[in-house]
Simulated assay, not measured.
Amino acid sequence: MDPLHIIVLAIVQGITEFLPISSSAHLILFPRLAGWEDQGLAFDVAVHLGTLLAVVGYFRRDVLAMGRDWGRSLWLRRRVGDSRLAWAVLLGTVPVGLCGLLFNDVIAQALRSPLVIAWTTIGFGLLLWLADGVARRVPRPRDEHSLTRLDILLIGCAQALALIPGTSRSGITMTAGLLLGLSRAAAARFSFLLSIPVILLAGGLSTWELIFEDHPVHWAAMGAGVVLSALSAYACIHWFLKLLDRLGLFPFVLYRLLLGGVLLFLLYPS
Rank of each mutant, 00 (worst) to 15 (best):
T167L: 09
A160R: 02
R137T: 11
I164F: 12
A65T: 13
S73W: 05
G92L: 00
L130D: 00
A108W: 07
V138D: 10
S83G: 07
G57R: 10
R78D: 11
V96N: 01
L52C: 01
L127K: 13
P95T: 09
L150D: 12
S146M: 10
I164K: 03
R60V: 13
T148I: 06
L64W: 09
S113R: 06
L115H: 11
L76H: 12
R61V: 14
A88M: 05
L53Y: 02
L115E: 14
W87I: 09
D69Y: 01
D62Y: 02
S170V: 01
A54C: 09
A118K: 03
R60L: 09
W119D: 10
G97T: 12
I122R: 12
V96Q: 00
Q159K: 03
A135Y: 00
W75S: 12
W70K: 07
L98E: 05
L163F: 04
L64V: 12
T167P: 08
R68F: 01
R79Q: 15
L101T: 05
G125N: 06
A158C: 04
L76I: 07
L127Q: 01
P114F: 10
I152C: 07
R140H: 15
M66I: 06
L101V: 11
E144T: 08
N104G: 14
S113L: 14
T93D: 07
L147R: 14
L111E: 02
G67I: 01
D151H: 05
W70Q: 12
G123Q: 03
M66L: 00
T148R: 13
G156H: 08
V47I: 14
G50C: 03
I152V: 11
G125R: 03
L90W: 13
S170G: 10
S168Q: 01
L101H: 08
L53M: 11
V63F: 00
V96M: 12
D132S: 06
T167V: 15
T51D: 05
L74M: 11
W70V: 15
I152K: 05
A160L: 05
T121M: 14
A86P: 07
A108K: 15
T51L: 14
R84M: 06
L161E: 09
A118L: 13
F124L: 02
V96I: 15
L153K: 08
Y58R: 12
L49W: 13
A88G: 05
W70G: 15
S73D: 02
A158K: 11
I152F: 02
T173C: 02
N104F: 11
L74F: 08
L101N: 06
W119K: 13
S146V: 02
T173M: 01
V47P: 00
G97L: 03
R84S: 13
V63A: 04
A54Y: 00
A162E: 09
T93L: 03
L115D: 11
L147P: 06
P141C: 09
